[in-house]
C-alpha cells in the first residue's frame, strides 16, 4: 500500500505550490499514472479520499489520466507488441520503454489571487 505514501507526497507538493501562489482552495488535481508505474489507480483514489480531509485538498477532485505502456527499439524506433519478447526483431537490441511508468502531478486547479 505505497499509494498512501504517494498521496502524502502529492498533498505536500500541492501545499507547497499553494503557498507559492497564495492559493486557498484546491478544486482539482490532474495526475498521470502509467499502467506499469506500480501504482494502482483505485487504491490511489481511495488513499486520496482518505487523506485529503483537513488538508488544502479537502473536497478536491483527483483526475487521473492513465497511460498504457509502450515499448520500442532504441535504435530503429520500431514499436513492439505488448507481451512480446522485449528485444528488437531486426537489430536484437533490448527495448526501451516509451511510456507507461509515469507517476506525475500535471496540474493543480485552485483559487489563487496571486496568479
Amino acid at each position: 500500500m505505497h499509494e498512501y505514501s504517494i498521496v502524502a507526497s502529492l498533498i505536500d507538493r500541492v501545499q507547497h505550490e499553494a503557498a507559492l501562489h497564495g492559493g486557498s482552495r484546491v478544486h482539482r488535481l490532474h495526475v498521470k499514472i502509467g499502467e506499469l508505474s506500480g501504482v494502482e489507480v483505485d487504491l490511489l483514489k481511495t488513499a486520496f479520499d482518505t487523506f485529503r480531509e483537513r488538508t488544502i485538498c479537502a473536497g478536491a477532485e483527483l483526475a487521473i489520466d492513465t497511460v498504457a505502456p509502450a515499448w520500442a527499439c532504441p535504435s530503429c524506433d520500431r514499436s513492439l507488441a505488448l507481451g512480446a519478447i522485449l528485444r528488437c526483431d531486426d537489430c536484437g537490441r533490448p527495448a526501451r520503454m516509451v511510456q507507461g511508468d509515469e507517476i506525475i502531478l500535471e496540474r493543480i486547479e485552485m483559487e489563487a489571487p496571486d496568479v
Binding site: H21, H27, R107, M110, E111
Partner: peptide, 14 residues
C-alpha cells in the same frame, strides 16, 4: 472566486 490552473508536470516522488 477565480480558479486558476497551476502547471507542475513533475514526478510526485520528486
Amino acid at each position: 472566486p477565480e480558479i486558476v490552473p497551476i502547471e507542475v508536470q513533475e514526478r510526485i516522488l520528486s
